[in-house]
Amino acid sequence: MTAVLVLLLLCLVCGALLGYAAVRFRVEGNPIAEQINARLPQTQCGQCGYPGCRPYAEAIAAGDKINKCPPGGAATIQALAELLDLEPEPLDAAEGEKPPMVARIREAECIGCTKCLQACPVDAIVGAAKQMHTVIAAECTGCDLCVEPCPVDCIDMIPLAGSLQHWKWDLPLPPGRLIASDRERAA
């Protein structure tokens, strides 16, 4: 009986201590949001439902799910899961992970309305009213926010082409996972 009481008392004391600590040592600001933001791909595409990467980072810090970023894909989810010590979840998007894209304006069709300029979150489109616009491919994040506003529908999202410089070897399968041709040889 005494033991139970003692334990109970101990629990209460610890709880009170923790509660006090939570109030007393409250961290101002949200440094975790900064770290989360650093792991997001910064396309500012808004596909997560937030207007940009930083708001989504803040939402994650406040408890939102980590699997809402299609441009980041599995790699970002993994990085966030590691940072926040959560279980990685599959991506929550209908189209699945998106390959890196770049916007291209079919310049012959551009009417120079500047709508895409205003939509671009990273100022990657140059142009002026009634002048042809063009995308600076190196700056484009592939967010496709410029596609929607275009009144003549002259912006295409094209997947980034692979090049010799970016070609890479695949990581070999773990030993023991045999592919069909190996099976024949092993037999």
Binding site: P41, T43, P121, T141, K168, P172
Partner: peptide, 23 residues
Amino acid sequence: AAKAEIRELEQKQHKAEHSRRRF
């Protein structure tokens, strides 16, 4: 494969940082 992967991630990180600054 690992080297390429690390380099690619680095580039991505770099680009993300760049985009964030621009944004």
